[in-house]
């Protein structure tokens, strides 16, 4: 093989390596460009999901009133009866039914905490979502305080997607 031929082959080899390096660079920069949008979406989607869930849950009508009123009743007087159930039991039953048909069905790990008052609370969470009683996850949980006067009840829902 002539010297010129070997040089051309070497050149082709270098061009090939440079092309591959450029391909990797371009694909990596495309990935970096996509990342901020994806992170924003995930934050938005998870925060929106937990906040909308709580708002809609509290507005839901049941037992001739709505969930928010039942939470207030459960925290203060426990006077409302829904068939044979107390207001607290009704809130928990409705929460379980809704969670079963939404977050559990969609396989979204969650942690729901309803703090009626400093003595009573209700927790419903998927496995490993609330280690040590705290909702774990990258995104801030949705929180909705309910005024009891005196005191405040709190409904909190966290999506435990890392």
């Amino acid at each position: 093989m002539k010297k010129a031929q070997i040089e051309i082959m070497g050149l082709i080899f270098i061009v090939l390596i440079v092309t591959i390096a450029m391909l990797f660079y371009v694909s990596n920069s495309v990935k970096d460009d996509l990342n901020p949008g994806i992170d924003q979406f995930k934050t938005y989607a998870n925060s929106e999901l937990s906040m909308s869930f709580i708002e809609v849950f509290l507005d839901t009508s049941t037992c001739g009133t709505n969930i928010q009123e039942l939470i207030v009743d459960c925290a203060k007087s426990k006077q409302i009866r829904c068939d044979s159930k107390t207001s607290c039991e009704q809130v928990e039953e409705v929460a379980e039914q809704i969670l079963e048909d939404t977050l559990i069905l969609w396989q979204v790990p969650y942690g729901l905490v309803i703090e009626y008052n400093s003595f009573t609370n209700y927790t419903n969470a998927t496995e490993d979502c609330m280690p040590g009683g705290q909702i774990k996850g990258k995104y801030p949980p949705g929180r909705q305080p309910i005024s009891l006067y005196p005191g405040t009840a709190m409904v909190e829902l966290g999506i435990c997607v890392s």
Binding site: L49, S52, V56, F57
Partner: peptide, 20 residues
Amino acid sequence: PVKIPTSIYDPVTNQYAFGV
């Protein structure tokens, strides 16, 4: 599909249902 919890208001019964 994007899923968003939403209330469905029934003006006949004046009730809010939990919807998606």
